[in-house]
Computed example of a mutant assay.
Amino acid sequence: MEKLSTTEQVLLAYYVQYYVENTAEALESLQNRLRQGMDSSEYEQAISLLAEAGLVNGTSKDEDKRFEPMITNKGVLFIETLLQIQSYAVETRKLLYVKNSLLTSHLQLTNNVISDYIKQAIQLQES
């Protein structure tokens, strides 16, 4: 089984969040969940690498803005390429594609916080 890097797993969590509920409150909830469940330096390093690569934005800490990382189009394309999700796939079915891709490609999520978040999000969409 191939393991996804921590950075890839963080990006995948933001990808899933984007298709579950793309609101400021949902972003903040995910960010808090990741910060509390992960080693803070590991999370910060992953976000920094993702921002440098242009896969997330909203990471600057301006006085007028909150720190709210959000996946970019480039980040969406990265995840869809990684999981072999066709870009023309229907948006309302993207999480099903994530689930199927993780199962068939045998990619392993090693971070329990992210793994649990993704499983819960997929279950919510299936119900």
Results as ranks from 00 to 15, higher is better:
Lys3Ala: 07
Leu4Glu: 04
Leu4Trp: 10
Ser5Ala: 13
Gln9Trp: 00
Tyr14Ala: 00
Tyr14Met: 01
Val16Gln: 01
Tyr18Phe: 10
Val20Glu: 14
Glu21Phe: 02
Glu21His: 12
Thr23Tyr: 04
Thr23Trp: 05
Thr23Asp: 07
Ala24His: 08
Ala26Glu: 07
Glu28Ser: 15
Glu28Lys: 10
Glu28Gly: 04
Ser29Tyr: 13
Ser29Ala: 15
Gln31Cys: 10
Asn32Cys: 09
Arg35Ala: 12
Gly37Asn: 03
Gly37Tyr: 03
Met38Ala: 10
Met38Arg: 02
Ser41Gln: 15
Ser41Lys: 09
Tyr43Thr: 08
Tyr43Pro: 07
Glu44His: 09
Gln45Met: 07
Ala46Gly: 07
Ser48Trp: 11
Ser48Thr: 15
Ser48Cys: 11
Leu50Pro: 09
Ala53Ile: 02
Ala53Trp: 04
Gly54Ile: 05
Leu55Cys: 03
Leu55Asn: 04
Ser60Met: 08
Lys61Asp: 11
Glu63Cys: 05
Lys65Asp: 12
Arg66Thr: 13
Arg66Gly: 12
Phe67Ala: 12
Thr72Arg: 00
Thr72Asn: 00
Asn73Pro: 14
Lys74Asn: 11
Gly75Ile: 00
Gly75Tyr: 00
Gly75Gln: 02
Gly75Leu: 01
Phe78Thr: 06
Phe78Glu: 05
Ile79Thr: 01
Ile79Met: 05
Glu80Ser: 01
Glu80Val: 01
Glu80Tyr: 01
Thr81Val: 04
Gln84Asn: 12
Ser87Trp: 11
Ser87Ala: 15
Tyr88Arg: 12
Tyr88Glu: 11
Val90Trp: 08
Glu91Cys: 11
Thr92Glu: 13
Thr92Trp: 10
Arg93Phe: 11
Lys94Trp: 05
Lys94Ser: 07
Tyr97Asp: 14
Tyr97Ser: 15
Val98Asp: 04
Lys99Ser: 09
Ser101Ile: 06
Ser101Asp: 02
Leu102Met: 09
Leu103Lys: 15
Leu103Phe: 10
Leu103Glu: 14
Leu103Thr: 13
Thr104Asp: 10
His106Asp: 13
Gln108Arg: 12
Gln108Gly: 08
Leu109Lys: 07
Thr110Trp: 13
Thr110Leu: 10
Thr110Ala: 11
Asn111Met: 08
Ser115Leu: 06
Tyr117Asp: 03
Lys119Arg: 15
Ile122Gly: 03
Leu124His: 12
Gln125Glu: 06
Gln125Trp: 02
Glu126Leu: 05
Ser127Arg: 11
